[in-house]
Design a protein around this nucleic acid. Structure first.
Lengths: 130, 130
DNA sequence: CTAGTTGCAAAGAGTTTGCATGGCG
DNA sequence: CGCCATGCAAACTCTTTGCAACTAG
């Protein structure tokens, strides 16, 4: 998709890798990269490319108008379920066992091929439940 | 949340019930209700109320800037997983068995309380896989 | 030197809100 | 009659795009 290796690209990818599987808005990303001087436009352009490549999960939060983006850093994240807490926004991985159960069950019973890359399970995490 | 029973409210709820668990944008809803003459503002206001009540699932589609809304018609839909095909947008229910597995496994292993009301599993449905 | 990238500012879109009017109870 | 709901238009915000300047290869 992209051909040149630029300063902006390098910084952005480093940042996303560091904050992998964290739900962030485009604005938050641009803000975090403020010191590196990367424009919001570029952030959007890269996010859009990454989404096409299936390396970005897009999600909404209840009561929020913004869209949040989550970078899928590692290969193995592609086959694992992600949980996102609707209260604190933090994300956690679930073991592969459950992912496999979901995957095979829905394929067998419904012919539905689950895409772990785009799926996010919502709920409330341990610490937020108190 | 709402106190009066108005023409708009009745029509909207009927429409949503008829198209339960279908991913629709606010604009699409307003357009479908065009003949009934219901303003976009009212659609948004109701969607927002319903979301607070947990009767609306909000989701995004890859490559789309719009947000889509899914009305949870029946009580039992609250405890069931929903599949949404990223290609055709159609939604299907999954049996309660799988929902229960997901629910209890994530609670036991991670203390994560899944909210079926907000969760959508993405993937490709049988007919779109060909 | 050529073609891809960036930043900025302007354009587009979706969503929210203020306010006057109208309707339910 | 009082208060809630509606519509419209304006305000907002987030996202996309055009274009000139810039830069990697």
């Amino acid at each position: 998709m992209s051909k040149y290796s630029t300063r902006q690209r390098t910084r952005l990818m480093t940042f996303l890798s560091t904050n992998a599987d964290t739900a962030l808005s485009a604005k938050q990303i641009a803000l975090a990269l403020e010191p590196e001087n990367i424009s919001l436009s570029s952030v959007y352009r890269y996010l859009s490319d990454l989404e096409k490549e299936g390396r970005i999960r897009k999600l909404t939060r209840p009561g929020q108008r913004e869209v949040f983006y989550q970078y899928t850093a590692h290969e193995n994240c592609k086959d694992v379920l992600h949980f996102s807490c609707t209260l604190c926004g933090r994300t956690t991985h679930l073991d592969k066992v459950l992912a496999d159960i979901l995957m095979s069950h829905s394929m067998d019973s419904f012919g539905f091929e689950v895409d772990m890359t785009k799926t996010v399970i919502y709920g409330v995490c341990k610490s937020c439940r108190k």
